[in-house]
Design a protein around this nucleic acid. Structure first.
Lengths: 265, 265
DNA sequence: GAAGATTGTTCCATATCATGGAACGACTCC
DNA sequence: GGAGTCGTTCCATGATATGGAACAATCTTC
């Protein structure tokens, strides 16, 4: 794929760069980081500011703008699962005191669509929109198990993240098979040390009657905490919560349309 | 301000257009809507798809992409108020059963930063990132009252939205003055018929000791419901909730930094 | 099932438009 | 007060975006 629309590409680079930086940045700083001339960066920033995708703080430095929020959350709410899943996320997060999040397949990856954070001082705080690896997470194992045509194990990378990352394809296959049988998947320290996750699939009937893997509901906690809660018990609980989401999704399209047509303040 | 970076500008047009459309759209359709040649639209879409800001559905039609979610929510979470306010939003929404939302000044407007929706069938569902008018909303009156240098009443538009929209500057001034005295503002059917809102300001001490208007906490409900709850009682309650947010914000920067440094799953 | 309309995509000559070096004034820091 | 920043503006150059035309592939329609 060749370069095309260089300026647009650079503008997007710029947005992601500002997104990645924790603080607002100045023109020169950005120019250095992206290896572009100051004048070019300045011109790009002006174009983005004009449309509200970037804003200047009091000191004249640049940071992501408010209109970006509108675009991003619009894209999120567009997903039919997010709306019906949110109450379930909050319910479970409150009941467990741990972070509960929703992931969905996008392209050839799983991304975090929504979350409800737990109450603890030590809690998982996934970043929305972020991609998660497949072979080292609970939701990834579900993807392999319940959407094998879209996520073939053969094509999976096996990058090592921690000591416990599964790096043999046969072991992974066994893990995935167990997840398929149990209806939930577990990840203990396989991606990030100290972090464990239990996840269950949200399946939806397509018009032609086939069940399709549309999302995964996950509970994340410190590994010790997960052990205390009991992975199997938690797995079953999460499976039930995912079923509740399924049930809501299963409502007739007419009903769903009514719900969607809420008044906007 | 002249045109510059035409291609970037058009790309942004395209993003907003896709955002505004409820369904995924095809190339020709978009080209017609934006009055651009098909080839140009196609090229722009390719550039955006390449970076994940736009995605194609199964039918090859285009819709806002997942990376847009990451950018948007990143911009949202960057705001220091959002993080500390969320628990309060959820708490109040749960207690009242009505939608509670947080707005903040951006540029010369107030935008919706976060929300927790109520449980009712009829409930307010503000769109995140959306701008709200100033003269016809409770949060706008707060802006006039608590940040008059930034939001001068003299410069305010007085567009008519409903029969009850305040359209005389002197009346508006009186309303604003009352809001300043009471510490909360009320809007009854002034923007949208049937919708009433009570809002209270979130003030933060600047380093030089000046209190600054950083956000407004608002409770939205059907007008009859608001009347039943008692606007004054609700106003005081909202004022208290806003104070809780202030108290959390007032924590020392060191403490806040620690909290921000949560583990990421 | 053929004809016609509409779709998404590719190609390419044209000149528009983005590009980036240089110079600017306003800062801050020694 | 000089040397280093900073953000911004200007402008000649040609690289690059542009959009009309042609393409094959689907959808409609009769």
């Amino acid at each position: 794929m060749e370069l095309l629309l260089q300026s647009v590409d650079r503008a997007i680079d710029l947005l992601f760069h500002l997104h990645a930086e924790r603080e607002a940045r100045g023109v020169s700083d950005i120019a250095r980081a992206l290896a572009l001339p100051k004048s070019t960066v300045h011109r790009l920033l002006q174009a983005l500011v004009r449309r509200g995708l970037v804003e200047q703080d009091a000191g004249g430095r640049y940071e992501p703008g408010a209109r970006l929020v509108a675009l991003g959350l619009g894209a999120q709410e567009r997903d039919p699962v997010v709306g019906v899943a949110r109450p379930v996320l909050e319910e479970e997060a409150r009941a467990l005191g741990e972070t509960v999040f929703l992931t969905a397949p996008r392209g050839s990856a799983m991304i975090v669509l929504d979350k409800a954070e737990g109450a603890g001082f030590l809690r998982a705080a996934p970043r929305l929109g972020e991609e998660v690896p497949l072979h080292a997470t609970a939701v990834g194992k579900l993807a392999f198990a319940f959407a094998p045509e879209r996520f073939p194990i053969e094509g999976a990378g096996l990058e090592r993240f921690t000591e416990r990352t599964v790096r043999e394809r046969t072991t992974l296959r066994a893990e995935v098979e167990r997840a398929r049988k149990q209806g939930f998947a577990v990840n203990r320290d396989e991606w990030i040390d100290g972090l464990s996750v239990v996840a269950a699939p949200v399946m939806l009937e397509t018009p032609d009657g086939e069940p399709r893997f549309v999302a995964a509901l996950a509970v994340a906690a410190a590994t010790q905490r997960l052990r205390a809660l009991g992975p199997t018990r938690l797995g079953r609980r999460t499976r039930e919560a995912a079923r509740r989401i399924q049930a809501r999704l299963g409502a007739s399209p007419a009903t769903r349309r009514k719900r969607a047509g809420r008044r906007s303040s």
